[in-house]
Amino acid sequence: MSGTRALPDTLRGWAERETGPVKSIRDASHPRENSRVWELVRADGCRYYLKISPNARMYQRETFALRHAAPALGAGRAPQLRASSAEHLSLLTTAVPGRPVKSLALSAAEEYEAHRQAGLLLARLHAAGDLTGHWRTEAQGALRAAAHGAERHLREAGDRLTPAERTLVGRLAAELCMIGPLPLGFIHGDAWPRNLIWSGHSAWLDFERSRFAPVAQEFVQLACEVWADRPQLRAACFSGYGRELTSEESHALMCLAGLDAVSALVWGESHNDPLVAARGRRTLDRLMAGVFA
């Protein structure tokens, strides 16, 4: 939990070889067991973040993103990687000015602009990286892989779902496998207001779920978490993005939302996170009512 973990001395020494002596260290972890992040501040006020990735795959994804894709967002629009340690699954990055949009009380105009710039940055990110070889193969198979995970999610959901809801999610998974080729790109993978930073300019943090995939997958959390009540923020995001989703992308997004809903419902209840569970339940209710957009 935030505020309870001390930075190991070995990692402090590793970080200070890059940053120089630090004056203060603050636990900046999210309130979950596998989040381990510290803010390091030098005497001159320069700030860095040291993060221990939850696992090797997330470490590899975030390291790759910060080296090869995130720089395309522009100066101050994503952290810069200063050092990484595969031995400790640790990354040392610069700090990005601002605070998460989720924690700010923005005016309607500021919030619209933050989401417009968020879309602009996602467009840059999606065009970054070298989408060749096994990266392209993995991206092309991402929808089918997601669909194949539906059976496990449905099994874990148990009696949390009605028979009609099970039938709906199963149908959406089957339809996902039949969707034709979609635009591919390098996605952030966890794009929602907790990871969107605002300082008068937008920036994205936390690239541990980034990967090459159909770009429609980028918008699942926004569609399920934000856009249901705030259609103006959807308009803002796609205004910055430079285009609307195609009809096939929109259908894929709806199918993916169904899978995400079951996953969120199971995860939220099993991890005592009522907000995540509520997101899943609400998305299922919208899909059942035919009002998901």
Rank of each mutant, 00 (worst) to 15 (best):
E33V: 12
R152P: 00
A164W: 07
D159S: 13
A114L: 01
D260C: 05
G20C: 10
E218A: 02
E33P: 10
L50W: 08
S85E: 11
D206N: 14
A75H: 12
A72K: 11
L11Y: 09
P193R: 04
P183C: 08
A72E: 11
R209S: 13
P274N: 10
A127W: 01
A72R: 13
M254C: 12
K102T: 01
D9I: 08
H115G: 00
H88M: 11
T93I: 10
N272R: 14
R171I: 00
R12K: 14
A95R: 06
S199K: 01
L73F: 06
D44W: 03
R32W: 14
L172C: 07
R61V: 03
L154Y: 12
S24D: 15
A108E: 15
R144E: 12
G185Q: 03
A95T: 07
A56P: 10
A191T: 06
P163L: 11
A278V: 01
A139C: 07
P97K: 04
L89G: 03
A105P: 00
G240F: 07
A228S: 11
S263D: 14
L120K: 06
A15K: 05
A105C: 04
C46W: 04
E269M: 07
A70H: 04
T283E: 02
Q117K: 04
A43S: 15
A235N: 08
R279M: 13
A114S: 11
V22D: 03
A236I: 03
P79R: 04
R171Q: 14
G76D: 06
R230Q: 14
H30W: 13
